[in-house]
């Protein structure tokens, strides 16, 4: 009899302790909820999407000034240095048709199309090989499809550069800061030894702004949610013939070109 009594007391004690801790946890949670920074809040202004994507209407981009304005908008806001060697850094740049669309779709393209410049940037792939190969998760894909970099975790192994089929990544072979004329204090500069690339302006989306290149393009670059049939990108893709770079390798790029 006494042993059962002891057992009962034991169980009762344990239960009381358990209840006590669980209620204490509830209380702590309630307090923590009100503490600053307890919940990740991007603010009411932020732009959200299920799958961010970009459509470049190449017909609307004609002069060298158009491209330079767009490239400058990106590179100045992101502190991208201009290094005049093979070890250059670039997030967005231009090249000719044969270099951009290497599959050589038509041998007899109209000269206007072949001679034109095309913008290149990170494709923010659905299946990004760079993310697959990164040994530290320093580069990763966000839930909204944007492939971003953690410059503080990157060990500079450059596996992602070997993995990227689009040549979208740059490595800081040396200290990039001496090559910056005007530093934008709102965006971090990088140190040597890390990889960097276009971020689809994730930092601007957070405060409700469209990417810098989109803003500077005067409507030639569209940006929106690929999963939303009413988004500007989906409307443009529905109405026009569009292509992507190296479609056969299965990366599913998020950058479309209307040619």
């Amino acid at each position: 009899m006494s042993t059962t009594r002891r057992q009962f007391l034991k169980i009762a004690g344990l239960a009381a302790f358990g209840l006590g801790t669980s209620s204490a946890l509830d209380a702590a949670e309630a307090v923590a909820k009100d503490m600053p920074g307890a919940k990740y809040d991007v603010g009411g202004k932020h732009l959200a999407a299920k799958r961010w994507a970009m459509v470049i209407d190449t017909r609307k981009l004609e002069s060298r000034e158009d491209y330079d304005r767009i490239i400058h908008a990106c590179h100045s806001v992101h502190n991208v240095p201009s290094i005049p060697t093979k070890q250059e850094i670039k997030w967005i740049w231009t090249d000719k048709y044969d270099r951009v669309f290497t599959d050589d779709m038509s041998q007899h393209l109209s000269p206007a199309v072949r001679e034109k410049d095309y913008l290149l940037l990170c494709n923010h792939c659905e299946n990004p090989p760079c993310v697959r190969v990164c040994p530290t998760k320093a580069t990763f894909k966000r839930a909204d499809g944007i492939v971003v970099m953690d410059y503080h975790r990157c060990i500079g192994c450059r596996f992602c550069m070997a993995g990227c089929p689009y040549g979208a990544r740059s490595f800081n072979f040396g200290d990039p800061r001496p090559y910056l004329k005007d530093v934008n204090p709102a965006f971090p500069t990088r140190m040597r030894g890390v990889v960097e690339k276009c971020t689809f302006c994730s930092e601007r989306l957070e405060v409700g702004l469209l990417p810098a290149c989109v803003e500077a393009s005067n409507g030639a670059i569209l940006f929106g949610d690929l999963d939303d049939p009413n988004s500007p990108v989906r409307k443009a893709l529905a109405e026009n013939f569009s292509i992507r770079r190296k479609p056969s390798i299965g990366t599913q790029p998020g950058v479309y070109y209307i040619v």
Binding site: R132, V133, C134, P135, T136, K137, A138, R153, C154, I155, G156, C157, R158, F159, F171, N172, F173, R192, G193, V194, V195
Partner: peptide
């Protein structure tokens, strides 16, 4: 490595897909 002092990140953040 560009940042050899960070090489332990490979162990600290193990990434089996790499």
């Amino acid at each position: 490595m560009g940042q050899p002092q960070r090489m332990l990140n490979v162990i600290l953040h193990p990434t089996p897909n790499s």
